[in-house]
Design a protein around this nucleic acid. Structure first.
Lengths: 134, 134
DNA sequence: TATATATTTGCAACGTTGTTGCATTTGTGT
DNA sequence: ACACAAATGCAACAACGTTGCAAATATATA
């Protein structure tokens, strides 16, 4: 799906910042921190604008964020049914810091202690990614 | 293990702030945000002191932090062999926000794409906890 | 195509958090 | 009781999260 469709689907007007952010996230294989995102945008926008855009996109389910050890947050485009999917897995490379969405991974549901009911699973796998492996 | 032992084991001097923080984290069943931690300490300490103490404890493996959706970070006492354990699971209650360490859970290792090598697994299970279930 | 209106943006401001240097205070071994 | 290494509090600064408001802009409508 390309950028215009994504915005239309979610009833969002087509503004430069929104298009730029979605284009950038679509173009990158890995998830990006807000810093990395800014560096990759074609133009500069106000912090508040980017903040609000990311917030809107998160609420709409267009993107999702991945919190990683060290209190860093990465942003990635969501697959269309992301929000409906119970389990999400991400790979975090300890070497380059890259965060990959693992869309096709299924997470085995572990046995929980009595009284706990699971609604969703978020798995972060730390390790060494394809590019850093040599 | 009680507080004094923990500090001695890690070659850390026994200061009020350190003792207070470990006591507090040992006393609570759930992990705490920095805010919640501060509210539960017996005395007040400078922000920088708490920051440095948490950092020291994290490095030593005395505590670990759990990043949760919404960019919140929770701190919890680690079991003695925490750092050596490859897989960690935490339960995050969507209702009360409580974060529980699930020490006895084993995580099934999913199949990764070619070229990716896993070194550790962090699983966060979202749902409804024992206390909030009625 | 011009216009009206609802949105979005940039700017400014403020609170919080992460982080560090430095002088003072404190813990601990002698 | 003392000396020295270590920890603390204070101050300061950068980065981030967040909001109000006025100016600019996207889009539906005439």
């Amino acid at each position: 799906m390309e950028t215009s469709n994504i915005l239309e689907t979610h009833n969002l007007s087509k503004t430069p910042c929104r298009v730029d952010i979605i284009d950038t996230l679509l173009a990158t294989e890995v998830a990006l921190t807000e810093q990395q995102l800014k560096e990759n945008l074609k133009f500069d926008y106000d912090r508040a604008t980017i903040f609000r855009t990311l917030k809107t996109f998160s609420e709409k389910g267009i993107i999702h964020c991945v919190p990683v050890e060290g209190n860093e947050v990465y942003y990635a485009i969501s697959k269309p049914n992301y929000k409906q999917t119970l389990s999400h897995a991400h790979f975090h490379c300890s070497t380059c810091g890259g965060v990959y969405c693992l869309n096709s991974i299924s997470i085995a549901e572990p046995q929980l202690p009595d009284g706990f009911a699971a609604q969703g699973y978020e798995l972060t796998i730390n390790g060494c990614c394809r590019k850093c492996k040599e």
